[in-house]
Amino acid sequence: MTQKPPLISVRNLNLYFGAFHALRDVSVDFHAGEMVGLVGDNGAGKTTLIRVLCGIHAPSSGEVYFDGRKVDTFHPKNAIDQGIETIQQSVGLCDNLSIARNFYLGREPVRRILGIPLLDFARMREMSTRVIRQFGLRDNVSADDDVERLSGGERQSIKIGRAVEFKNRVVIMDEPTNHLSVREREHVNELARQLRDQGLLVIYITHDIFQVHRLADRIVIMENGQKIEDTTTDRMSAEDLEAVIRHGGRVVEKAEA
């Protein structure tokens, strides 16, 4: 659908965890201004794939191109500097730090006094307080509270709010609506749509194929570390996609054979 060169291009990616072959020869392109739904069974390798894109895992073989340039060193710092914001599935907040400190972790705003970088607490509080209010967290939650005391949904809201605030070129969401109430789910999906409309690449991982079919422009299905389907949402119905996931890669292979 897009003639422009892809923003992220993954070529023949393989990743081993010890002897375990977690990603098998995955090739996939992602374009700016596109929302891609990434779906598949538990343990299919969705999280592992996006963890390569955001620099946490280095591939065992294969290449990743960002904006036409080959990625040589994989580190979250590089990915963030390149403009990739990720809402991780299971990590991203340090319980022992306040919301404000978590918000800016790794990119703390500073005021320099005699050349010494001191944290700019006023700025840190201001932005995190704004996000707390936007996401309708309880009124008694303050930016100075430790994350430890937040509920699952509140944590998720903080992670999403942070990624949206720092949005740059790519936002990757790994099961973002986990723990969220119906109202907040709608809010998050609306945010994802807005980001796409603003020209960002949005990669949206979920198990809710029907929901993501309405939302995304393209769906990529993974199974056993492989990409088994890659199609635009106007070419395949949600029911057909669900059947592909339900029957796993084998049925598709049979059908193809």
Partner: peptide, 11 residues
Amino acid sequence: GSSDSALSRGV
């Protein structure tokens, strides 16, 4: 507190 979380934020 959580080295994985810190890493994921680019620390």
